[in-house]
C-alpha cells in the first residue's frame, strides 16, 4: 500500500526527511516512531500529498500522492493530530458530509456505515451534538470515525492515542486488529507512546532528525540488547581505570557504572579494578525492554545515525515516553 524509496523532503535548508525507504503491504500494521521533529508527520504529509517530496519516490496505493492525491484518497484515509474538526457540525454530519465527498460527486457511504463507525468509536450517544462541545478525547474518537467512513484500504493515523484514556487506547487497538482481520485493512500509525506500538504493529520505522534509525519488526529492536552494570567502591576512579583498559562506561546513577555492550569478562574487570585499589561490589547483566532499546537507539543516534545495527550502545534505565526522556 505504501512504498517509499529514498524519500526526502526539505523545509528550506533543513532536511525533514532524508533517504527513507519503507514498504507497507495490504493487511499489515506499521508504526512510525521517533521523537518530536523526527519527521513522522512530514512522512505522513508526503503520503497524503500535502507535501511534495524533494527527492526519491513515494507511492500510496500505486499512485504518487502529490500528483494523484484524489486517487490516493479514494483508497486511503488519514487522521492527523491534533484532530481538526468543524466546530458547527455534529458528529453524524461530519461523517455524512466528509464520507460522501467523492471524486465523481456520487455519495460513497453504504447504508448504516455512519452508525457502524459511531458505534465503533463509542460516539453513538452523542452523534447529534455539535463537536464544539466535545472533549479532546471525543474529538480524537470522531477523527478516527471519520477516517473509517467509508472504509478505506489504508488507514493512516497520526498520534491516534493522544488524549484517549487507557480503556479507549485498548479499544482502539482492538478496532485496528479487527479491521485488519475482517477487511485486510493496512494501517500506518505514528506515535511516541511505545507500549501501543509494541503490542500492535508488524513493522516499525524509527525516525530521528529525518533519518531512518531502525526498520524491522519490534522484537528485533530489543533482541540481543543486554547491558552490563557494576558497582565499585570509587566510581569515578573505576571509570578512568576501565577506560584506560579500553572499556567505555557511563554513569548509571546510584553509584553504578554501565559498561557499553555485553560479554565482558568479569575476572578481567575485577583484576583491573583491584590492581588500582578499587573494590568491585556488584556486577550483573540486564536485558532491555522494547522501549528501553528504542531509547538507546535514539541516544546512540546522536553519535551515529544509520539503519545498521549498532553494537556500541550505552544505556540508562529510564522508562516513559521517548520525547520526555530525551528532553530530560
Amino acid at each position: 500500500m505504501i512504498s517509499a524509496k529514498g524519500l526526502g523532503h526539505r523545509f528550506g535548508e533543513r532536511k525533514a526527511l532524508d533517504g527513507i525507504d519503507f514498504e507497507l503491504g495490504a493487511g499489515e500494521i506499521a508504526a512510525l516512531v521517533g521523537p518530536n521533529g523526527s519527521g513522522k508527520t512530514t512522512f505522513l504529509s508526503c503520503a497524503a500529498g500535502f507535501l511534495r517530496p524533494s527527492s526519491g519516490e513515494l507511492r500510496v496505493g500505486g499512485f504518487e500522492p502529490w500528483r494523484d492525491r484524489r486517487r490516493v484518497m479514494e483508497r486511503a484515509r488519514f487522521a492527523f493530530a491534533p484532530p481538526a474538526l468543524f466546530e458547527g457540525l455534529t458528529a453524524r454530519e461530519h461523517l455524512r458530509y466528509l464520507g460522501n465527498i467523492s471524486r465523481k460527486g456520487r455519495p460513497r457511504l453504504r447504508a448504516g456505515e455512519i452508525e457502524e463507525a459511531l458505534e465503533r468509536v463509542g460516539l453513538s450517544e452523542r452523534a447529534d451534538e455539535r463537536v464544539g462541545a466535545f472533549s479532546f478525547g471525543m474529538r480524537q474518537r470522531l477523527a478516527l470515525a471519520q477516517a473509517l467512513t467509508p472504509r478505506p484500504e489504508l488507514l493512516v493515523l497520526d498520534e491516534p492515542t493522544d488524549g484517549l484514556d487507557p480503556l479507549a487506547v485498548l479499544e482502539l487497538r482492538k478496532i485496528l486488529v479487527r479491521l485488519r482481520e475482517e477487511f485486510g485493512l493496512a494501517v500506518l500509525l505514528s506515535s511516541h507512546l511505545l507500549i501501543e506500538v509494541d503490542l500492535l504493529v508488524d513493522h516499525l520505522l524509527v525516525l530521528n532528525e529525518g533519518r531512518c534509525l531502525f526498520k524491522g519488526q519490534p522484537h528485533e529492536l530489543s533482541k540481543g540488547n543486554r547491558v552490563t552494570r557494576l558497582r565499585a567502591s570509587d566510581t569515578e576512579r573505576a571509570a578512568s581505570v576501565l577506560l584506560a583498559a579500553g572499556w567505555s562506561t557511563v554513569p548509571a546513577g546510584n553509584g553504578e557504572l554501565q559498561l557499553a555492550g555485553t560479554a565482558h569478562d568479569l575476572e578481567q574487570v575485577r583484576t583491573k579494578l583491584n590492581a588500582a585499589g578499587i573494590r568491585l561490589d556488584g556486577y550483573w547483566e540486564q536485558s532491555l525492554s522494547f522501549e528501553q532499546a528504542l531509547l538507546e537507539r535514539l541516544k546512540a543516534a546522536r553519535r551515529n545515525s544509520s539503519c545498521e545495527a549498532d553494537s556500541s550502545i550505552s544505556v540508562t534505565m529510564t522508562a516513559g515516553p521517548i520525547a520526555k526522556d530525551l528532553e530530560a
Binding site: 500535502f50 479514494e74 474538526l85 465527498i101
Partner: peptide
C-alpha cells in the same frame, strides 16, 4: 489555520 484544510484535502476532492 484551523487544520480543517487537511481534513478536506484528505478526501478525494481536487
Amino acid at each position: 489555520s484551523a487544520g480543517t484544510m487537511r481534513l478536506l484535502l484528505a478526501r478525494p476532492l481536487s
